[in-house]
Each structure stands twice: as structure tokens, then as C-alpha cells.
């Protein structure tokens, strides 16, 4: 058992036994060597289930939304990218600050389980693209820290127990390529772009995994939820899927924390982050560089304006 896992279990046991928190969200070892899925525990004995390694990719913050109407205090572990989701939920007033206990952990970079060739034999796997492009490997907010993790509200180098492993694996080494996919699509002709997205929207069958895992998608009632309202029903035609994809991208515009979970969970491998990154690229160019979910007191770009914003509509 690695050191981080040990510290996680000790802290969890302590928090649950003392009653400081009613529940704790973390990761546990899954049924195969390349799976470390989420787990929610409520008893100190259950702390034994907790585990952390390079497959603990899930952003746990979305699960906090299940507790937003209650008064229970819930603890959860966050990696750098996940912690931006906490700020997202707080800025959107979806959870009360006093009802969440954020525990920051250092991250060695998450491995790409799509590269597994032998389900029985552990092997070295490459990093996920989002980890290669990572700019926030350290938690941006935390109430407790374990294993040497340090809070940083700015883009930074990985810190803590996993720092050297993260550096060796290349966490953050491709930051400059963050918008590469966006630029590749922008370079296509209009018809090529449309054909590209049409092929993606033909695949989508509107399972809403992307929406349900996203910390920025936290509306009490999503417009896609009730077909009586008339916006969409469950019909999964390419045009309806395009409507869903673009509307969701615009609804999270300026609030997307780039955790990349939407793209990871899509069962059809749709490049959802291309849409979100396009919006982020444009926001940076038009309204100034900003990273959503890094500064609790910060303002979301589409929730404010400047008198001298670019003027193209006169």
C-alpha cells in the first residue's frame, strides 16, 4: 500500500470516527489493476476501502451535488484538477463552504486505461492527454492536505510526495498544446468542420454522462431534463445532439474548469473538450486570460463585462 493511501485511510478514519464529517468521498481499488473508481463511505471501518494510485482519475466533486440540500458535512479528496470543481460549486452557490471538507492530495498524473493491452498484467501506461497538458497539478483550495500536497491558486509545478514521479511522467509537459485540437479544427474548411461534427453528433446517443459528471453542470433542473418544456426530448438525431452539445458548451462557457471528465466518460469518445477549449480560447483572446475555478473570489467572464469589451456588432 502506498504512502498516500495510508495517509488517506488514517485521516478518513479520524474524520469519520470523530463525527466531524458525516460522509467521505474518495477512491477505492476496483476489480482490475487499472481501475480505481470512486467510493462513498460513512463509517470509520470503511476507511480501509480507500486507495489512491495513477488510476484515481475520477473527479469526485460532482458527487457533492447529492448533498447540496442537506446540512451534512461531507469530506472529499481532490487532486489539482478536481479542486477547481470545488471552487466551481462554491462560486455557483451549489454547496455551502461549511458543509464541505476539502482534502488536497498530490498527483502523479493519471494513466490512460484505454492503452491497456493485458487485463491481467499490470504494465506502464502513458499519461492521459489532459495530464500532459495540466497547469494546475496542485489543489487550488483545501482544508486539509496530505502527503506533502500544497495549495496553489496559480499554475505551478507539481508538489508533494508525487512531485518527482509527476515530473518524470511528463505532467504538464505539453501545456502549450492545450489548444492544438481546437486549432486543428479551426483550420478545416466550413464543410469539413461540419462533416467532422456531424460524424460526432451521429454517434451521440444522449446518455448525459458528460453532463452528469460535470461540476459546472449543476442546475437544479436542466433544460434537457423535461421534454414537456419543449426544448428537447430524448430523440437522438444529429441535429438534436448538436443542439445539446453546443448549448451545453455555451452554458458552461466561462465556468468550465477543464477537468476533462466529460470527454473521459463519453462512451462514444466524442471530443467534448474541443468545444470547451474553443470557448476557453476565445474567452482568453476576447476578454483576457482567465482560468475558471482557481480563485474563489474571482468572477466568471460571462457574468461580468467591461465597457471596452471588443465591439464587433455596431
Amino acid at each position: 500500500m502506498n504512502q498516500i493511501t495510508k495517509e488517506m485511510r488514517d485521516l478518513a478514519r479520524e474524520l469519520l470516527a470523530s463525527g466531524e464529517v458525516k460522509g467521505l468521498i474518495g477512491w477505492t481499488k476496483g476489480s482490475r489493476w487499472y481501475l480505481t473508481p470512486p467510493v462513498v463511505i460513512t463509517q470509520p471501518e470503511e476507511a480501509e476501502q480507500l486507495y489512491f494510485d495513477q488510476f484515481a482519475v475520477n473527479n469526485l466533486t460532482g458527487l457533492l451535488l447529492d448533498y447540496r440540500y442537506g446540512d451534512d458535512k461531507i469530506a472529499l479528496f481532490v487532486k489539482g484538477c478536481d479542486s477547481r470543481g470545488i471552487v466551481r460549486l462554491l462560486q455557483d452557490h451549489q454547496i455551502k463552504r461549511d458543509n464541505v471538507l476539502v482534502i488536497g492530495v498530490p498527483c502523479m498524473g493519471m494513466s490512460d486505461k484505454k492503452a491497456v493491452t493485458d487485463p491481467r498484467q499490470p504494465a506502464e501506461l502513458p499519461l492521459l492527454d489532459k495530464c500532459l497538458e495540466c497547469r494546475y497539478p496542485n489543489p487550488v483550495i483545501a482544508d486539509r492536505l496530505i502527503s506533502g500536497a500544497l495549495v496553489s491558486g496559480e499554475p505551478s509545478e507539481p508538489k508533494g510526495l508525487t512531485a518527482s514521479e509527476a515530473a518524470k511522467r511528463g505532467v504538464g509537459s505539453k501545456q502549450a498544446d492545450r489548444f492544438a485540437q481546437v486549432k486543428a479544427i479551426e483550420a478545416m474548411s466550413a464543410d469539413e468542420k461540419y462533416a467532422f461534427w456531424q460524424a460526432q453528433h451521429e454517434k451521440c446517443f444522449r446518455c448525459y454522462a458528460c453532463r452528469n459528471i460535470c461540476p459546472a453542470c449543476n442546475c437544479r433542473e436542466c433544460i434537457f431534463e423535461s421534454d414537456k418544456k419543449g426544448w428537447v426530448n430524448k430523440s437522438a438525431t444529429p441535429t438534436d445532439n448538436a443542439f445539446f452539445a453546443v448549448t451545453r458548451a455555451m452554458h458552461v462557457a466561462g465556468r468550465c474548469v477543464e477537468c476533462g471528465e466529460c470527454e473521459r466518460v463519453c462512451p462514444m469518445d466524442i471530443p467534448i473538450m474541443a468545444l470547451n477549449r474553443k470557448v476557453i480560447q476565445d474567452i482568453n483572446e476576447l476578454f483576457g486570460e482567465s482560468d475558471a475555478g482557481t480563485d474563489l473570489d474571482g468572477k466568471m467572464p460571462l457574468g461580468l463585462f467591461k465597457n471596452d469589451d471588443p465591439e464587433e456588432f455596431m
Binding site: I185, D191, E192, K193, A249
Partner: peptide, 12 residues
């Protein structure tokens, strides 16, 4: 400003 660019990105 964003939506205009997004529509172009979709090929409209």
C-alpha cells in the same frame, strides 16, 4: 462574441 465563433467552429 463567443456564440459567433462557436457557430463558425461548428461549420456554419
Amino acid at each position: 462574441l463567443l456564440m459567433q465563433r462557436m457557430l463558425e467552429f461548428m461549420g456554419i
